[in-house]
Amino acid sequence: MAEALNERAEADVDQQLMSQYSQGDTSAFESLYQKHKGGLYRYFVRQIGDLQLAEDLYQETWGRVIKAASSYETSAKFTTWLYRIAHNLLIDHVRAVKPVDLFSEAFTEEQDADSLLPSDTQAPDTQFEEGVKAKLLKHCISLLPTVQKEALLLNMEGGFTAGGIAEVVGISLEATKSRIRYANQSLKACVMNKWQEVENER
């Protein structure tokens, strides 16, 4: 309940900042940008293997926000609007052209195992374990189907619930929930398997 209220207050702040910017207050835009730049940036970078293309799309998204600031409807939640623009750009520029090749393949099986091997100088076991699992998760995320990966990033970076994700992506709530469940299950299984491999190598 408190989380929902907090979320609502955040949305109100975003809308206020946006309306202030549309009235000519550049500092309002700066606040808005600082608040959302990291999440949006990672939304692109973690889905697209090409960093340059990811940055171009990121810049294009903010360019569209700036251009459409005067016509921004306060009834729409700002983050929903922002990520919908990003999603549409991603569809237009990446998926329609090269659906497979451009997506992140940051890790190969060989790289993964080597880079995750423990060194003797590392921190205590629990901290070490979390660090390794975080790296394993990154690898596992790259293996997820595109739609599940997007659902995860929208949840983690944008803070969207299943309903919000459905609104941004333009699919049904049930389909979104299904994607989240499958992604959750796949990631957990993938990380545990990889962790087991690491343990075995130790």
């Binding site: 990291g38 973690r46 699992k133 975080a134 394993l136 983690m156 299943a162 299904s178 990631l187 990380v191």
Partner: peptide, 26 residues
Amino acid sequence: DENADKPAEFDAEIKLWYRAQAQETP
């Protein structure tokens, strides 16, 4: 759907591991 009864959100563990990743910024 065999996962239909499970809650539609990511596990706390996954969230924790995700937050532990390096956060890229522009």
